[in-house]
């Protein structure tokens, strides 16, 4: 059976699933809107979590939390379930498809066969929508892909029960209750306030302070860790910032798009101006990526080069600090 489901490509999987499921239920919510209301924008250095043998850096909120906040703020209810038993997980999925209900699934990327090999790492917080089943083949709408695709039931079970950090455990979710009308205005204000709070938080690894902290680390890496590791870590930062799903510039462009869209909805022209500022900050992040890539391209980089990109990060941190203080004021 196939549910009549419209696939729209998005930059980021979680926002994309939210946006596509909302559109399916008749609410036109764009990807940036889902991202902004869910306060997806962040910067965080997570020293104790190692990803591919390097410390983790993230430019977004924890997996799953964007949808959680979005739902709470616009007043929809979501049903979520996790399973111990793959059989049970499959039964629940099939029931929903039979009831004409497309569902979101959390999956691991490593065994996702339609991804290019190079992109298949042990990352367990990918999201996609299942919108039908034909014999033993599931119809998949993966928001980062241009078109819909399919997975066999074996393949789907494998990715639903991937192991490691953030193991999905068959996580299935779908909206079950909608308000008469989405209260976007209040939700937008809440979303922005939360993002400002996160980015200006007095915690050394979070937000603006986290960016400064990272700059300090970069200065130390070549001496403390050796050039090889330093380059590996630097590459990790760039990958987290620019890899598929960020929309470019570590989600800064999506956030700018959200501010632009919001400025008309809540009638605050100031947000449109701030959107331009955020776009410029996104450009700075990309300049940083270009210069960082020059370092890890040549194995023999000068120490100066690390200091250089670190300084770039510090400039970005200063700009973002000013930006989020202004944004906080604008929304009052």
């Amino acid at each position: 059976m196939e549910i009549n489901f419209a696939h729209h490509q998005s930059a980021h999987c979680e926002n994309g699933v939210i946006s596509n499921l909302m559109k399916h239920h008749g609410y036109n919510v764009s990807e940036p809107m889902a991202f902004g209301i869910g306060s997806g924008l962040l910067f965080c250095y997570i020293p104790f979590l190692k990803v591919n043998h390097a410390p983790a850096f993230t430019y977004r909120a924890l997996p799953g939390i964007i949808f959680k906040r979005f739902a709470k703020r616009v007043g929809i209810k979501i049903k979520r379930e996790k399973f111990k038993n793959p059989q049970q997980a499959k039964i629940r999925l099939d029931e929903n498809l039979k009831n004409n209900n497309p569902v979101g699934l959390q999956v691991g990327v490593y065994n996702l066969v339609y991804f290019p090999d190079e992109y298949r790492f042990h990352f367990n917080a990918h999201n996609l929508v299942v919108y039908g089943k034909e014999d033993d083949t599931y119809l998949i709408s993966d928001p980062v892909m241009e078109t819909v695709t399919t997975l066999s039931d074996k393949q789907l079970e494998k990715v639903r029960f991937a192991k490691g950090a953030f193991a999905p455990k068959g996580h299935i979710y779908y909206p079950i209750h909608f308000p008469k009308e989405l209260d976007l205005e209040k939700a937008i204000v809440k979303g922005i306030k939360h993002t400002c709070k996160d980015m200006l938080a007095p915690i050394p690894v979070l937000g603006v302070k986290g960016i400064r902290h990272t700059a300090k680390l970069i200065r130390k890496w070549p001496k403390k860790k050796g050039v090889k590791k330093a380059n590996h870590y630097l590459g990790q930062i760039v990958r987290m910032q620019e890899e598929i799903g960020t929309g470019g510039g570590g989600f800064r462009y999506i956030f700018a798009a959200f501010l632009q869209e919001s400025s008309t909805i809540i009638n605050k022209p100031a947000l449109s101006e701030l959107s331009k500022e955020m776009t410029a900050i996104g450009d700075l992040w990309r300049d940083f990526a270009v210069d960082a890539s020059r370092i890890y391209k040549n194995r023999s980089a000068k120490e100066d080069a690390y200091n250089n990109v670190a300084t770039q990060l510090e400039v970005i941190a200063d700009k973002e600090e000013v930006f989020f203080k202004k944004l906080k004021k604008a929304i009052k």
Partner: peptide, 8 residues
């Protein structure tokens, strides 16, 4: 820049 990072 990110292709290089990935290839590395």
């Amino acid at each position: 820049p990110k292709t290089i990072a990935l290839n590395k």
